[in-house]
Design a protein around this nucleic acid. Structure first.
Lengths: 239, 239
DNA sequence: CGCAAATTTGAAATCGTTCAAATCGGGTGG
DNA sequence: CCACCCGATTTGAACGATTTCAAATTTGCG
């Protein structure tokens, strides 16, 4: 089942009928592994299928000048390229951070599924809108917060989203990104990002070693970050 | 007709059948004027209708700490809150920059229209996806470009989008925002933004007076900004 | 004409970058 | 099991872009 975590996530947020769950669970798909830093697609590509993250993290990036900017991070259960259903030209790269497993489902199948179910249309459209809401928060994060709360905010968001798909354990989670990835996501230099990480460690707000992150005091971290999870729309159900 | 510019824009990008154009042209709607700085809605609100910009500029903003971050700018023909069709809780403000005219169409009407037309579903879903693509570019803009190209990039984007709805004349357009708005959109202080604007003026790249902006050398400006219009998806038609 | 908002100027302070080098750490091959 | 190697992290110091604060000037509107 490519979509266990996907269904878990949608289920938690909007609720699904048995029928719709069944449709999602039985999507024809092809599974593929990606290695660290391997590209799922590149800017300028066109595609006729969508990717569902099964394990590992993916991220979107744009190269601007000599910098690489990470635009968003995708976790198991996410569909990082759902937008390709309506926008075929890729305006950025999609890359694997660490090894990952991805299931691919064809556009033609997805389209037929959506025609037959207004609910699933609503749910998947909604999913792309939450994606956009997260971009907005990132604009605010990168544009308005100082380095410390910016990095803290990213950890808060990831923790909240990982919790939703059952990948948090005792406030800790597997984190395949490097400090350089973190820097690229926050629009900071890697040297400064390193100093920020050290500051957060000294403050006892994060523990990070061996691709494993722990947030022992999430409340304080969220306060420092100014993290308001409303933009994730976990409990904003229109149905 | 609330939707002249909207139809022009969709027409230019995806093409519409006479039937679909008719449906859009005949949407029942209520028109309302907004004054400078007046809020169309605020963070935390819920709404049961969508706004179509008829004249003037609107912008989305988030308050983070003591700063106000502008997340996107909406022009005539845009539907700045199409996402409310599926996400009812507002995670940001929508504000009028200068006086504006807005047409409101109820969710219930829009939903019934979408059920009856897969094409319009595609077109409007697509519209929210272009919105998201613009957010991504803004993350990259604010996260990766220096102040000069950041401001230049914003002007390039607005010019391209205004052109699409016929609001550019001789490389100039009406621009109701203040330098402080520009600063809030670019994640810069207003003092520094002012110096950047002066630099662009000195370079002959922009003229700006009386709410009127002119870009006499768009090519050079685009080069300075690293502006690549692919993310606007003007010529990326899936139908 | 007069007020309030918007723009402009100057100077000092700060946050973050850059460059360069050192150290750490995990995985590989012998 | 150990030595080695490469990528990732860490440190230091100088530099630079942007912010902040405070005040002056200009502009547009009533």
């Amino acid at each position: 089942m490519p979509s266990t975590k996907l269904i878990a996530r949608l289920q938690a947020v909007v609720g699904l009928s048995d029928d719709d769950r069944g449709k999602l669970a039985n999507m024809p798909h092809a599974v593929r592994q990606f290695a660290d830093d391997e590209h799922i697609f590149r800017q300028g590509d066109r595609t006729s299928r969508c990717a569902i993250v099964m394990s590992g993290f993916l991220f979107r990036q744009k190269i601007v000048g000599s910098r690489s900017q990470i635009l968003s991070i995708y976790l198991p259960g996410d569909i990082p390229d759902l937008h390709t259903l309506h926008l075929s030209l890729m305006d950025h790269d999609l890359v694997s951070a660490g090894p990952s497993t991805v299931a691919f489902v064809s556009h033609s199948f997805l389209n037929s599924m959506l025609v037959s179910s207004p609910t699933l249309t609503h749910v998947l459209w909604r999913d792309t809108l939450v994606d956009a809401a997260i971009f907005r928060e990132w604009v605010a994060n990168v544009g308005s917060r100082d380095a410390l709360s910016r990095v803290a905010h990213l950890f808060c968001e990831l923790a909240a989203r990982l919790e939703l798909v059952g990948l948090m354990e005792d406030n800790g989670f597997i984190f395949p990104l490097t400090q350089e990835h973190l820097a690229d996501a926050c629009g900071l230099s890697k040297v400064h990002t390193n100093r920020i990480v050290q500051a957060l460690r000294r403050g006892g707000l994060i523990e990070w070693q061996n691709h494993h992150v722990k947030l022992p005091r999430r409340k304080e971290l969220a306060e420092l970050a100014g993290f308001m999870p409303d933009y994730l729309h976990f409990s904003d159900n229109k149905l």
